[in-house]
Nucleic acid binder design. Sequence first.
DNA 1: ATAACACTTAGAGTTAACTCCAAGTCAAGA
DNA 2: TCTTGACTTGGAGTTAACTCTAAGTGTTAT
Lengths: 125, 125
Amino acid sequence: MTITEVSKKFDLSQDTLRYYERIGLIPSVNRNKGGIRDYTDEDLKWIEFIKCMRGAGLPIEVLIEYVTLFQQGDATTQARKELLIEQRQQLIARMEDIKKTLELLNYKIESYENSVAIIEKDLKR
Amino acid sequence: MTITEVSKKFDLSQDTLRYYERIGLIPSVNRNKGGIRDYTDEDLKWIEFIKCMRGAGLPIEVLIEYVTLFQQGDATTQARKELLIEQRQQLIARMEDIKKTLELLNYKIESYENSVAIIEKDLKR
DNA sequence: ATAACACTTAGAGTTAACTCCAAGTCAAGA
DNA sequence: TCTTGACTTGGAGTTAACTCTAAGTGTTAT
């Protein structure tokens, strides 16, 4: 699969895909005779995983570490697991923040609804 | 209340507090005779609100717009309400992303648990 | 064969959100 | 009086995560 196809499939710019590869956020992609990237299914799996994690806000640095550990083989499974558990904790905390903020937003929006209602009542007088 | 006290109360650096004021993210704070900031309860309310919103990731630009609208008075209540509704939408979307990612993380962690279990079984042979 | 186009690399530039720094002011204590 | 320390301002520097540019190569359509 070419970079153009991958870019469309995942809605990531070609620049971003090359950048991710350059910094080691995805394992390096094979080139064909002409030196052009040819993504394998394995590569696509990585991209999907990384895109999901980035979408939730996991830092690139942490994800690079995960990929690096992965490439070091079976000796690092424990470390990888711990890394994921740590990130899960962070995500749960983020979710709590968002929930709290959503409640406050709901409350504020409701009060705006009430005050708008009052203004409208005023207009009808 | 002095900037030191506010900084401690909300766990925001003095630099951040001054920065927020400078860019109009909080309405400007009164100074005493010596030119030193003296935060009112009203100011604290704003800081608490902004801190909550920033904690959930609302962009500074949007929050500045909200503060600006607020300072323009009652004519902007409708616009402010719409702004909050829009941001609520965004937050709900963020939350969905995080939920999806949490599920994937849970699944991955579980598989690491299983593979570790297998390794341990191997060791016992 | 030549033009058009997608691709390559290395490296510079951008954006958001701080964070730090320098130079200066002012009140309070030794 | 002198020094200490918290504060002031304006502006420069930093970090993360892209995003863009330039210069060059290789494949395809006319």
